[in-house]
Simulated scan of single mutants.
Amino acid sequence: MSDYLWFEGIPFPGVGTDKGILEEIGDKFVVRDEDTIILTYPKSGTNWMIEIVCLIQTKGNPQWIQSEPIWKRSPWVESEDGYQTLINQEGPRLISSHLPFHLFPKSFFSSKAKMIYVIRNPRDVLVSGYFFFHKTNLVKNPGSLIKYFEWFLKGNVIYGSWFEHTRAWLSMRERDNFLLLSYEDLKQDTRGTIEKICDFLGKKLEKDELDLVLKYSSFQVMKENKMSNLSIVPEDVITNGLKLMRKGTTGDWKNHFTVAQAEAFDKVFQEKMIGFPRELFPWQ
């Protein structure tokens, strides 16, 4: 088990994160106009989105996603390995990140780079995060869902408060180079959402190519793909044979929250997200 690495009041993974990189990333990392960025709060469908975008780029050909680990196809800009890979990579880059708005490379905000931001019902994010992180060496182990629930509402979890992270990034939603998607819409209308991503990225797929994207980015196929399910990550990083894919569903929080927890969460959500139109949150 690893404790957090704290930076500017936000807890980061204790493994694979370097304070020096976090200090220089905002001012020194240069986002290029041709880059594509996938940004999320943890456990919001990040790897599913990476898989979809990789398959869109190959017109549904699965060779790339089956031969190269997901973190190499779309390196994490805030990780030690990802940062070094990206600064040395030529041509258009596919970049992943969980960084909060104020720590993201400033060069992005004056660039033409395209960002896909995926949000998910924070109740499901909480439950998914608990079941994932308590089996890893990446973060401090809460021991129980009750404790993790308390930490989540206070923002004392990896990458800080969901509410602050989401509020800040939603301020970009009217930008032409920013596509806001929800995990729930992606689950309910996968084909339509993938078509929306293609339009945003300027990619035209034929029907059979789109069918291949749907097939190879499906939950079951991703779960069996060793390059996508984290099963090849060394045991000292992730324990207990954990795989990335657990359920891939919506509404699982209802199986775990007590009535009191549901009411407490609703109260905090209403307070923190006041002022945003309800249609931004399709789970409401």
Rank of each mutant, 00 (worst) to 15 (best):
R123S: 06
P75E: 08
K72I: 05
D27G: 14
G82F: 02
R175D: 10
M273C: 01
W48F: 11
T250P: 03
V268K: 10
G248K: 07
L145E: 04
P277H: 04
T193Q: 15
V157F: 06
T36F: 01
E195S: 10
P105D: 07
S217V: 02
I95V: 12
K204Q: 14
E206M: 10
D266L: 00
F108Q: 05
L126R: 04
L179Y: 11
N88K: 15
K215A: 07
L145H: 06
I25N: 13
W71Q: 13
Q188I: 05
V125D: 02
H134N: 14
L186D: 03
L22M: 13
F149C: 05
E209F: 04
L55T: 03
D211A: 10
G143N: 08
Y159R: 08
Q89H: 10
D189C: 02
P105H: 09
W6K: 08
N156C: 12
I25G: 13
Y159T: 09
K223H: 04
G9K: 11
I95H: 04
I70R: 08
P11D: 10
M245H: 01
G202I: 09
S67Y: 03
T258D: 07
D185G: 00
T239S: 11
Q57I: 03
L212T: 01
N61F: 09
H165S: 10
V237H: 00
P277W: 06
G82H: 02
E195P: 00
P69Y: 06
L201G: 02
E164R: 12
T190D: 00
I50G: 02
S44R: 06
D199C: 12
S2Y: 01
N88G: 15
Y4G: 05
F276E: 06
L170N: 11
Y159Q: 12
S79E: 06
A260Q: 13
E263T: 05
L230V: 11
I25H: 12
P13I: 08
F12T: 07
E263K: 11
I38H: 03
W253T: 03
V127C: 05
D35E: 12
D18E: 14
P100A: 10
G60C: 03
I238P: 01
A260T: 08
T17Y: 12
K254E: 04
T190G: 00
T85P: 00
E206W: 06
F133R: 10
W169C: 10
D199A: 11
G275S: 10
F108Y: 15
E174N: 15
E51R: 02
N177C: 03
Q270F: 00
D266F: 00
L103N: 10
E24C: 15
D176N: 12
S107D: 13
L22Q: 12
Q220W: 03
F109P: 09
D33H: 06
T249N: 14
P282E: 11
I194N: 02
S128A: 07
W253V: 04
W76A: 11
L230A: 06
I25A: 12
